[in-house]
Computed example of a mutant assay.
Amino acid sequence: MQGTFIGFNTASIKYEDRFFALMLKTKLPNQLCQNYYLQAQALVDLLRVLQNRMAIIAHRLADKGESYKSELIAYNEVFLQHMPPIDMSELNQPSPERRIVSITLKPGETSSTLILVLQNERIETLQIDDMQVEVLLMGIHQALNNTGDKKIFEFLNSNINQLLLYAVDLTKDQNIDYQQYPQEHWRLNLFTHYLGVLFCCDTAEGKKIMSGAVIKTSVPHHSAEENSIVMRLIELSPKLKTMHEQQAPVQIFSTLIPSAPGKMLTLEECLRPLHTFYLETQTLLNA
């Protein structure tokens, strides 16, 4: 089948001692190899897909138990035997035309088909079987670890587990001043729920909610993972970053925004609940 591979290898490329790109080398069933180069944003999309499939695999493991676990182990023992070697020339002189410009996901029952647009405008597919996901994640993590670059981990951790949809200025009484971050539907479908976030600051008049955001994520509500995500949102949004240059938040509030499974919320369906949450929370702060 087009896009399938029987083995892989990974390595990171550095520039001025910082992460520049990840090289993914795949071994095809005909024994030929194919190289792909992913810079930070494309790597985020790939990792989002792999993490989403890991959640599916976890449910499958819970349902099928030891038989599925044994199947995974046996598959990966063979999978790792087909690891292609990487030549230093592939890292020192990467082929620009093999850089992945964008990824689109076509999910399947037990696999993911990635539609890749390369820098030379060629379109290719890469099919990742669910059996391959865990080892792929391990290989990517090891390649990133080898860079010794903490910044790339900070970037990935800020982006992988959420999608920023709206950043909102709540200091204006009349109109909601917002910035939208459009996202493709396939990305939105990777996450389970919408979350409204409010940022509260100390002011001369007391505690005031100055800004807010709407994201989509899958991490549990009111969890440590959610706290980690929302605390990094300001750095991801130029609008929020500008608003809080002089006044850093002292409290952060969050609420689930109701949505049906698979439904894409409109602008109003996101911002109206956020504004209601703002009014309710500010009232409590004023009490």
Rank of each mutant, 00 (worst) to 15 (best):
G206A: 02
M23C: 13
Q179A: 12
Y181L: 05
P96T: 01
E235R: 13
T266Q: 03
P96G: 02
L105R: 10
N146V: 12
L163G: 02
F5T: 00
D177L: 07
T255W: 00
H59F: 11
L233V: 07
L271E: 00
N286L: 05
A167H: 06
Q127Y: 00
I229P: 01
F8E: 11
D45S: 15
E124Y: 01
K172L: 08
C270A: 03
F79Q: 05
F19A: 07
A74L: 10
P94W: 10
L50V: 09
Q41E: 15
Q142F: 12
T266K: 06
Q31E: 15
G7Q: 08
R232I: 04
S102F: 06
I13E: 02
V135M: 15
A55L: 15
L236W: 03
L61N: 12
P84G: 06
L233S: 06
L170E: 04
V230C: 03
T281E: 05
K151H: 14
Y178N: 03
K64C: 10
M131Y: 15
S259G: 03
A224S: 13
V78E: 11
P94E: 02
R187M: 08
I6N: 05
A248Q: 10
S259L: 02
L170Q: 02
A21K: 14
T255A: 04
I209Q: 01
A224Q: 13
G139K: 15
F153L: 09
N9S: 13
I257K: 01
S259M: 02
M210K: 12
M1T: 00
F155Q: 12
I252E: 01
K241A: 10
L126V: 04
D149W: 08
N92P: 00
E154D: 14
M54S: 14
L163P: 00
T4K: 13
P261H: 05
P94L: 02
I103H: 08
F253K: 01
T217A: 07
G212Q: 02
I86F: 11
Q246F: 11
E245T: 04
I56S: 09
Q51L: 12
P94T: 03
L28G: 06
M23S: 10
D129H: 09
N52F: 15
E77P: 00
R272W: 06
N227C: 06
M1I: 00
N175H: 15
V101K: 09
L156K: 11
H275R: 07
L22G: 11
T283F: 09
R48W: 11
A74Y: 07
G196M: 04
V117F: 05
S70K: 13
I103V: 14
E268F: 05
L105C: 07
S67K: 14
A204I: 10
L267A: 04
Q247G: 01
F20P: 00
L116N: 04
R98V: 00
L46V: 10
N120E: 10
A287C: 11
E66V: 11
P85N: 06
T10C: 15
G148N: 06
L195P: 09
H221F: 15
M138I: 12
F153C: 03
H82P: 00
R60N: 07
L240I: 00
T171F: 00
L144H: 12
S12L: 08
D169H: 05
E16K: 12
Q51V: 07
D17F: 13
E90S: 09
F155E: 13
L24K: 07
R272I: 15
Q93E: 13
L170H: 04
